[in-house]
Design a protein around this nucleic acid. Structure first.
Lengths: 195, 195
DNA sequence: TATTGTTATACTCTATAACTATA
DNA sequence: TATAGTTATAGAGTATAACAATA
């Protein structure tokens, strides 16, 4: 996974006396679990680290919330894409999410099993399986989008409208500058972020 | 993993005629691989999606670069932490990176095999294995940090100093507000981000 | 001969739980 | 009895390559 810790500099002075005290103090089931020398309270000022840290947190949190409506991120993504372009072949959708065909099969299997998506024959080419949403699929998609709405609300807690706009603009600048495909999310698997 | 696509709205109008044209156009080995209906060029304005997208991109890119000096993110992280607090026990370090003891063993095994880290006996408790960097370990750590420096440089390409500061401040605000532990990076594995 | 969808398979990463040696 | 470290193991997620039907 990921970005790294450049916070090392501030640490390393104190040692065992402080540590043993801390390790046994009563009220630190969560926070105080780390010895103080490793539990720096100074937030890293490192931009790359922050981006990675916040991004992964956001992704993971979203996966958690999505699970509440029985969806995993890849499934939600496929639903979105099928909705965006109904009647496309499985592999067209797969290409759009950058998933190999074999993975797509598994996802569609699952979605079809749950009655959210339909595979229909394409009269013009009997090899392809055209994908369509069912009514239940639209319902699930709506639920997922509601989760996404709440997720974003949570994520922007404590930020003013202006700040949100600023952050959005800056991030979009990065996407642009780094030539990350506009709507393409790197990493398709759900495990990636929900671990 | 992850954030989701709310870009669906803009799509779905055109269909096969446009698509077949696009699929065959010559100069789109990369970009034009997607049918236009799925290849929206409008960047998403969704903040949660952007955070996840950029964060994962950053993490993955960092893992790639780190590989150039034969390090994986978890190894680099462990090196950083050992450097920050030499002489700590394996499990203390493990706790600091939120890794289960069994994973830590594997990482330290690898680092020791490569001569970057030493396990020493602790005279006060013969169960613990105190961790120390070797000279080679310090060298590797320095290389990793240099990679991190270049990585950040790449990531902030095209941004003014002021913009970088703005972005840093905003992200730090999110870390604070979301109660993500300051220096704690969610997700320890390297696979997460390099897939 | 190439392509769509499918299956089989192998590989990696991960956590859990059992085990040992010390305490 | 509890803890530091280790090992064994099983599960999830992933990609690759072989395959069948169709073009």
């Amino acid at each position: 996974m990921s970005e790294e810790i450049h916070q090392a500099e501030t640490v390393g002075a104190d040692r065992d006396p402080v540590f043993s005290k801390c390790a046994q103090s009563a009220d630190d089931a969560t926070a105080g679990a780390l010895p103080p020398a490793l539990d720096r309270d100074q937030a890293p000022r490192n931009l790359a680290f922050l981006l990675s840290q916040v991004g992964i947190h956001a992704s993971r949190r979203f996966a958690e919330r999505l699970a509440e409506v029985d969806l995993q991120p890849p499934h939600f993504r496929v639903l979105n894409l099928v909705d965006a372009a109904e009647g496309r072949s499985q592999q067209e959708i797969a290409a759009a999410v950058q998933a190999p065909p074999s993975r797509m099969v598994a996802f569609v299997d699952e979605l079809e099993r749950r009655g959210l998506v339909e595979r229909r024959a394409d009269p013009r080419d009997r090899r392809v399986r055209a994908l369509y949403l069912t009514a239940a699929g639209r319902e699930a998609l709506a639920q997922g989008r509601e989760v996404a709405r709440r997720h974003q609300e949570e994520l922007t807690q404590g930020m003013s409208e202006a700040e949100q706009q600023q952050l959005t603009d800056l991030l979009r600048k990065v996407v642009d500058e780094q030539k990350i495909g506009a709507g393409v999310h790197p990493g398709f698997g759900s495990k990636d972020l929900s671990r």
